[in-house]
């Protein structure tokens, strides 16, 4: 295992999850550095969503430990991990459909930020970035699918997480929408660390600093674009699928 440097934001030690005898995640040792954009790829059913769910605590691990920002968070409940600085956006759009765009983002902003004025400013700020400012009072259920995905991302940004986990954010989007997403995610890396689960290789290759490949619950390869593209094991895993 690599050395744990000052620069490390999150790492896991032998993280495992069993579902009724099936090992969905096997002894994963994973490390992500601050301000990195990391892509997590792998064939369907490789355990990607399960793995990130273990990181943010939606699923309890069977074995192993998660360290975040210098602390062992393995036994922290979900809300403590999230308020500690892990943001998570869902694979299937999960927003408050009956609430307005404003209310959705307001919920994502931490209480301590204080006065209504500064919250309003923050909301406008985030919505401006994703381009939803003109829809601030619209019911989010009335938004188009692409806009809902943007709102989901805006909520993740408004949380100001140290680590933002994005579970297939571009799924179902059109090409111009995907380009917009790439740009947004890229612009985030100055202020936060991004862990991105993604199927779209074009997105992965154009924005990820580093790529990890998960296959049958194990990390089979890790490195920059070139390394991954030329890795025979990765090719076999994808072609054999």
């Amino acid at each position: 295992m690599d050395t744990i440097e000052k620069n490390t934001l999150l790492y896991t030690e032998n993280l495992s999850k069993n579902f009724q005898g099936i090992q969905a995640v096997k002894n994963v040792n994973f490390k992500i550095n601050k301000n990195e954009i990391r892509a997590l790829i792998g064939p369907n059913g490789a355990g990607k969503t399960t793995f990130v769910s273990l990181l943010c605590g939606r699923i309890k691990s069977t074995n192993g430990a998660v360290f975040f920002d210098g602390k062992d968070i393995s036994n922290f409940p979900v809300y403590k991990r999230i308020s500690g600085g892990i943001g998570y956006t869902f694979q299937i759009t999960s927003i408050f459909l009956n609430l307005t765009v404003y209310e959705n983002v307001a919920l994502a902003i931490k209480e301590e930020t204080g006065k209504t004025n500064s919250i309003d400013k923050e909301i406008s700020n985030v919505l401006d970035k994703v381009g939803l400012l003109d829809r601030v009072n619209q019911r989010s259920g009335d938004l188009s699918y692409g806009h809902q995905r943007l709102l989901e991302l805006a909520m993740g940004m408004a949380q100001r997480p140290k680590l933002l986990i994005l579970d297939e954010p571009t799924q179902g989007l059109s090409d111009p929408e995907i380009d917009n997403f790439k740009f947004l995610i890229k612009s985030l890396s100055s202020s936060t660390t991004v862990l991105l689960i993604e199927h779209n290789m074009d997105v992965v290759m154009s924005i990820a600093d580093k790529i990890s490949v998960l296959h049958f619950g194990e990390i089979i390869a890790e490195g920059d674009k070139k390394t991954i593209q030329n890795d025979p094991i990765v090719q076999k895993a994808y072609l054999g699928d």
Binding site: R58, V78, I82, S94, L99
Partner: peptide
């Protein structure tokens, strides 16, 4: 209200 509408999301926002 957020819990009523989508408690899973409310949890994942850190509440």
């Amino acid at each position: 209200i957020a819990i009523r509408e989508n408690s899973d999301r409310a949890l994942m926002l850190g509440y």
